[in-house]
């Protein structure tokens, strides 16, 4: 088949499907309404979760947790570089009131791509190393003193 003809045929198929409801599963009108309602409900839930869990004011502490155990707590306003772990390592940098994992030995580097965090509640996660870096507000100060 010549190339042009194939192209025309593909376009023809595409135009049929944009007009038809085949791409929606060819179901009944009621089903499509329910599909829409489902999608809307999920997006609403997303908005609700975002609203209630969004990061708060500026943080004061950088809390490092490995395997659910807190392993370190650093003041956000003191610049420093910390290496967490040995063979499986993440390098945490605190600079100018922000924190980031700048280097890591994990495979996916999601932690490095997360970038800089500074607001209360923001987190950096490294799933392969079970590491969580979380920004905590000034209220966490008491804990630090107690330690």
């Amino acid at each position: 088949m010549p190339r042009r003809q194939t192209g025309c045929r593909l376009l023809g198929i595409a135009s049929v499907y944009t007009k038809s409801t085949a791409w929606q599963g060819g179901g009944k009108v009621k089903q499509h309404r329910n599909d829409l309602l489902l999608a809307a409900a999920v997006l609403l839930l997303a908005a609700a979760v975002w609203f209630f869990s969004r990061p708060g004011g500026s943080g004061a502490w950088v809390v490092v947790t490995v395997d659910g155990q807190e392993t370190g707590r650093y003041a956000l306003d003191q610049d420093r570089t910390v290496t967490i772990g040995e063979a499986d390592y993440n390098v945490l940098e605190i600079s100018g009131g922000q924190a980031a994992v700048v280097e890591a030995s994990c495979a996916d580097h999601t932690c490095v791509r997360t970038g800089w965090i500074s607001r209360e509640g923001e987190t950096i996660v490294c799933l392969p190393h079970r590491l969580v870096v979380r920004i905590q507000g000034a209220s966490g100060e008491l804990d630090a003193v107690a330690r």
């Binding site: 791409w23 999920v42 979760v49 659910g68 979380r134």
Partner: peptide, 27 residues
Amino acid sequence: VLGTAELIWYLPALLIAGTVAGVCIGA
């Protein structure tokens, strides 16, 4: 695995991504 509830923070983004992916794959 991480023993932390902080990850709920990622949920909104994942819900939106899941919906978009669902529409694409479903179509």
